[in-house]
Design a protein around this nucleic acid. Sequence first.
DNA 1: TGTACATATGAACAATTATTCATATGTTAG
DNA 2: CTAACATATGAATAATTGTTCATATGTACA
Lengths: 125, 125
Amino acid sequence: MGDEFCSCDILHENLIEIVKKKMPQEEKLYDLAELFKVFGDTTRVKIISALFEAELCVCDIAVLLGMSQSAISHQLRVLRQARLVKHRKEGKVVFYSLDDEHIKTIFNQGLEHILEPRGFEHAVF
Amino acid sequence: MGDEFCSCDILHENLIEIVKKKMPQEEKLYDLAELFKVFGDTTRVKIISALFEAELCVCDIAVLLGMSQSAISHQLRVLRQARLVKHRKEGKVVFYSLDDEHIKTIFNQGLEHILEPRGFEHAVF
DNA sequence: TGTACATATGAACAATTATTCATATGTTAG
DNA sequence: CTAACATATGAATAATTGTTCATATGTACA
């Protein structure tokens, strides 16, 4: 190995302990990663972005994104399980809409981040 | 197929057009998904969460998370490329810290979402 | 100059995940 | 009850991605 110990550990040992204590529970961080995983797919981001504008049925979304009904339905299930969208049934048709205010904040902050101009440190030459 | 058309399309045709026009560019949505993908991994969420508390070197993080130096280094690269962390070199040691204010908002909104009590619609019996 | 050490990186493997295809469920209209 | 339709879902496949292992880079110090 050789990965286990390094002089650096000794130097920052206390700091590591302090940080460890301040960090949220392991389980919370796991759930948080699961949540962001849901945002981390182009199809789902597009669906969310569409539902930002209006309530839509499954078929609308499929047409809008040019994808199969099945693919959309599978992704809507993921979004539902993460409680990001809610659904309303009207006869055969199921309408989906956003379920949460946090989504808008997360989404917009994400957009702001990617639109931010790059500093020197990040320049890709 | 049979997925291509449905009566539903005809009903909401106008709505689809309106939504399509309002949605951000395809490319932006792709980048956004890429950004969230970076948040969507337990190891990286833990790293971010640790850097919330203090600037740390690679080795500190490896010890803190009980993972190999290599694994951490690979993940730090991903975080760097997404401009979520910045680094500062001091001799052999490289210190990492958070690079962006949006991260904190995104992170906290995410936490609020997962900590939110579940409504009836989402109850898992 | 050479050794020790912190970090970075390439390749390979294992695990996860999105989409497709086929089919099931549930609702409406005849 | 049956046919038509919107949506959901299971299984399989294809693509993506995280970690490991081995090794490279670059800095400090003797």
